[in-house]
């Protein structure tokens, strides 16, 4: 958290609206390399939109989104692909390819984006699935999975390429406490082993407190707080205090 650490992500004065609905208004923050940021906020405040802006699925109306040195919102085609290759993304809905088995879901990015051999791919897929506890279900179709299993499979797919930046949208929603904390362990391990930069959208305060270095709170289209847990627990806004689990 020293200033010398390079920034991985910069959100610079970003505004985004859908039609007449202003979802984000002049939101600015930056994430250091290897840092884990938890994005909190009430439902519908634009957390998922923020993640999609980060990976270039949405473009800001005003402002810039920098990934490393690159403004992702101005990239297209191959340049965009190259940048995304460093990033892993877990959709809130998991968004597994429902015409393929779990194994194929994970193998697809490996096959297309790396020159690993067939057995290496198989190995990597199996390991990623084992990490989320789905090794036994690798031949199942997404339709045959429960909501929590889908979420874990989606996370496995986001991790299988060993990304430098990991963007996860509610990884522990729909999971029991034990599994949720296993997922948190997994994220902590990523952070420790690979110094992965992680942005987590979550409603699970308990988990967030374990993995998060800093916390961002969105409310009414604005970033109302962006700081460490201690600072936020004593924040002036009651909403913020409640969201981070303080009094």
């Amino acid at each position: 958290m020293t200033e010398s650490q390079p920034t991985a992500i910069v959100f610079d004065g970003v505004s985004k609206s859908f039609g007449s609905k202003q979802v984000l208004q002049e939101v600015s923050f930056s994430v250091m390399q290897g840092e884990t940021v938890c994005l909190l906020g009430r439902s519908g405040t634009g957390k998922s939109v923020t993640l999609k802006l980060l990976i270039g699925l949405l473009r800001p109306d005003i402002g810039k989104v920098l990934i490393g040195q690159d403004n992702i919102s101005s990239l297209e085609g191959d340049d965009l692909s190259r940048l995304r290759r460093k990033m892993g993304f877990l959709f809130q809905s998991a968004a597994l390819f429902d015409s393929a088995t779990l194994e194929e879901n994970l193998a697809l990015p490996l096959r297309r984006l790396t020159d690993k051999s067939k057995s290496e791919i198989e190995h990597a897929v199996l390991r990623a699935l084992a990490e989320v506890g789905l090794a036994a279900d690798r031949y199942k179709m997404p339709g045959e999975l429960s909501g929590g299993m889908k979420k874990r499979a989606g996370l496995a797919r986001a991790l299988v390429l060993e990304p430098e930046i990991l963007l996860v949208d509610e990884p522990s929603s729909g999971l029991d406490r034990i599994t949720a904390s296993e997922i948190d362990d997994l994220l902590l391990e990523q952070k420790a082993k690979r110094r992965t930069t992680i942005v987590i959208v979550t409603h699970d305060v308990h988990g967030a407190r374990r993995v998060g270095d800093r916390f961002a709170v969105l409310d009414k289209a604005r970033l109302v707080a962006f700081d460490t847990l201690q600072c936020l627990e004593n924040h002036e806004s009651k909403t913020v205090r409640t969201l981070v689990g303080g009094q």
């Binding site: 995304r84 290759r85 959709f91 390819f97 429902d98 697809l108 990015p109 297309r112």
Partner: peptide, 14 residues
């Protein structure tokens, strides 16, 4: 609708 197209995009596939 189920964001699978976005998921493909995110995996750097056109």
């Amino acid at each position: 609708a189920s964001e699978q197209i976005d998921a493909i995009e995110v995996l750097s596939v056109d």
